[in-house]
Amino acid sequence: MNNQNHSYYLIIDLEATCCDRGTVPRQEMEIIEIGAVMLNGNTWEIDSEFQQFIQPVRNPQLTPFCTNLTSIQQQDIETAPKFIEAIANLKEWTSSFPNNIFCSWGNYDKSQFIQDCKYHHLPYPFSAEHINIKEEFSKYLGVSKRFGMAQALEYLGMELKGTHHRGIDDARNIAAIYRYMLTQKRS
C-alpha cells in the first residue's frame, strides 16, 4: 500500500434513503447521514469527527426498512440541513486538514456523493483521488474475497463499536481497520 504520503485520511461512511421493495430506485437514493473521521497520517489517531444528518428532498419520508437498518429516525432528518448546506459544512470542516484524501469502504460512498452532487448541481467536493479501503483490505490479506466492514473487523479480532449502519460509527470502525492495516505488519 502506497498511501503513506497523505497527512490525513478523510474516512467517510454515508447512509442513504433505502427500501427493501425496490420502491426507491438506486438512482433516487439520497444521502441522509455523513459520518466522517479525520485519521492523522502521523499519529494514526482520529484528530476530529464530523457527523451531519441531511434532509432528503426526493423521498422525504424514510421507509420502515431504512429506519430499521440505519436507526436514523424521521425526526433526525426533518430539521436537518439539505444537501447543499451539509456539503458546505463538510467542506468547511475538511478545510482545516490539509493534504487529506477521501477514503471509504468500497466505492458506494464516492458514487453516492457524485450522484447527489449532480442532482443538486454542485461540484464534487473531493479530489479525483480516492482510497477504496475494502479493496485495500483484500490486497492487505492477499485474497480476492471482498469483506464487508463487520466481517473485516471480525477477521481482525476487533469489536464493532457503536451501531452498524450509522455513518459516524461505521467511519470510526473503518478508521480502526485502516489504522491496523497501516501500522501492523502482516504475518
Rank of each mutant, 00 (worst) to 15 (best):
A86K: 03
N89M: 02
C117M: 06
G106F: 12
S111P: 00
I101T: 12
F97R: 06
N89V: 11
C117H: 02
E92H: 11
F137K: 00
H120E: 12
A80K: 02
S138Y: 10
A80M: 02
N107H: 06
I131C: 13
P81E: 04
E78A: 10
E85H: 04
I101P: 01
K139T: 14
E136I: 15
H130I: 13
W105G: 05
F113W: 05
I133N: 02
A128L: 13
F102G: 00
P81W: 04
D116C: 13
N132T: 10
F83M: 05
S111M: 09
K134I: 15
H120G: 05
Y124W: 08
K139D: 12
N100S: 10
K134E: 14
I114K: 14
N107K: 11
A128T: 15
I101C: 02
P81Q: 02
N89L: 03
E136G: 00
Y108E: 01
C103S: 08
F102M: 06
P98E: 00
Y124C: 08
A86L: 06
A128N: 13
Q112A: 09
K134S: 10
K118R: 11
P81T: 10
N89F: 00
E135A: 14
I84Q: 02
Y108K: 03
E129D: 09
S104Q: 08
P81L: 05
P125D: 01
H121R: 08
N100V: 11
E136L: 14
H120N: 14
E129I: 15
T94I: 10
H130A: 13
D109V: 10
W105S: 08
P123K: 02
P98R: 00
E78V: 05
F126I: 12
T94P: 11
I133E: 01
T79A: 04
S95L: 01
P98W: 11
F126H: 11
P81A: 04
E129C: 12
F126A: 08
I133T: 13
F97K: 03
S104I: 01
F97E: 03
C103R: 09
Q112P: 00
F137R: 00
N99D: 07
S95Y: 04
I114L: 14
F137A: 00
H120F: 14
K139Y: 02
I131V: 15
P123S: 11
S111G: 12
W93M: 05
I133L: 09
F126G: 06
K82M: 08
C103D: 04
D109G: 12
H120Q: 08
I114V: 12
I87P: 12
S111F: 09
E78M: 11
H130S: 12
N132V: 10
E78N: 07
T94L: 06
Y124D: 01
S111Q: 11
H130V: 15
E136D: 08
K134Y: 09
A128H: 14
N107D: 07
K91V: 12
Y108L: 06
S104F: 06
S127Y: 14
